[in-house]
Design a protein around this nucleic acid. Structure first.
Lengths: 252, 252
DNA sequence: CCTATTCGTGCAATTTCGTGCAACCTCGTG
DNA sequence: CACGAGGTTGCACGAAATTGCACGAATAGG
């Protein structure tokens, strides 16, 4: 049996059973345990599985990935959240997109602020519930697990019945030429719908999103009110975004 | 069984049931209690759980008041959740009400179950998201903090567009004369609307709700398919509820 | 206060791990 | 075809991890 073939089999077995045991594979495939161990080591080094004593476990993608995403640029996102929260005036109706940055906005709302917050993310809703004076409106729909936001026709229908003052849009790419983009077509459609329902749209972009582009375009930079970027963003990047006709602000 | 696998299972069991008992795990997994105790010690040292005499408790990050309410009749609610989850057939469309019992239903869904779960509670939605095969539909509306469920006209409008096979209704009072009741008028209206959209309605009632009545009536007992009550419920109480024309089932 | 569990620790047996090494195979090159 | 480089495999051996058992201490519940 070829090495590459064995590795593929190991991964598919992991996908099916969630675990493999080195000794068992050695017996089943009639190779020495050393060989299996070597395979496991190399796959673990490549991040394809989690090595444990006795065998390996699946590198749980769902749980792991979301947690990793939440850990990316935490300090930046906190600052972006604080800045975003400060933009909200009392009495306004504000749409909060999903995503870890939106959760930071929810956490930094002034305790005495009275406003109506609209969201299509159950996570954000739970976070907002900690603020007693905030009225929370949830937009329903089909829950898209990867981003933990509701999407679909039902959501766009619900959104069509409201008018907001402000929309904090989350994107995965902010690029002068490619515009605002995200990784899922449904999400892009939802973001467009929410943008249409709001007087102003603000994008809070942590550094890894700047000058990046994802598969599905939401719209061009010139259509939104402002992009907020981390304080540490190089002036050259700010200039290039600003050149496409959008206001760029930096966090404190 | 691998050590790492065992530790993962312990944590997931804690997340589901809130507690584990060292002796039981040893019997179930056919290892010595020493091994389980070692696992518990190490997990406790890592801060992943709280070690207690006889087993361990979940290291709850203290979600405040809701967590306290969740602590009421935990064992009963776990059993009710397990029983409710077992009623769901593959492919069905099921509405899950808000509340701590509903969360237990979500936690006990069979991992391989394919079904569509509808909920108007962001907490339940987040819990359901752990099941990759479940399609999740959220009903939006105004978030009612006390119960952490969406209510209002928008919700009833969204609900009017679906037909479900099963509805797990949560109430605060089950009384032969007063019927099913809850503490908020809006919630009562929502429950009525959801009941109308479902072929069958099941009420999962922990013991403190039996023979109790709250301010707002949802409907009479005879309109629903069944009430599920804890195993420890006195026969006298079961008889009095059954007398009002509803099937009463006890948890195992 | 008493009894039955449960706990922690030390210890020995077993399994698994990592590394170095030699044998072998494959492939490209002269 | 000869030959050397690079990769793969199995084996040996010391290190580390895991497990079950024994025994005295601590704890819970009556």
């Amino acid at each position: 049996m070829l090495t590459a073939q064995r590795k593929k089999l190991i991964l598919s077995r992991l996908a099916r059973d969630g675990q493999v045991i080195a000794g068992d594979l050695a017996v089943e495939w009639e190779v020495s345990e050393d060989t299996i161990r070597r395979d496991l080591r190399e796959l673990a080094a490549a991040g394809r599985l989690q090595r444990v004593h006795g065998g390996a476990l699946a590198a749980s993608p769902a749980d792991g990935e979301l947690r990793v995403r939440a850990a990316v640029s935490v300090r930046e996102k906190v600052a972006l959240g604080r800045r975003g929260a400060a933009m909200i005036q009392p009495g306004q109706v504000v749409i909060l997109d999903g995503g870890t940055t939106a959760i930071q906005v929810a956490r930094h709302l002034a305790p005495e602020l009275k406003a109506t917050l609209v969201t299509h993310s159950p996570n954000v809703a739970v976070e907002l519930a900690a603020h007693p004076r905030i009225e929370i409106i949830m937009l329903g729909g089909r829950l898209f697990r990867h981003s933990m936001v509701n999407v679909g026709a039902a959501l766009i229908d619900a959104a069509s019945k409201l008018r907001a003052d402000l929309y904090f849009m989350g994107v995965t790419g902010v690029h002068p030429k490619a515009g605002l983009s995200t990784g899922d077509a449904e999400e892009a459609a939802v973001k467009r719908a929410l943008q249409e329902r709001s007087a102003e749209t603000i994008v809070l972009a942590s550094s890894e999103k700047l000058l990046a582009a994802s598969a599905f375009v939401v719209g061009s930079l010139s259509e939104i009110a402002a992009v907020v970027v981390p304080a540490s963003t190089p002036p050259r990047i700010i200039a290039s975004i600003r050149a496409s006709g959008v206001k760029v602000e930096r966090t404190a």
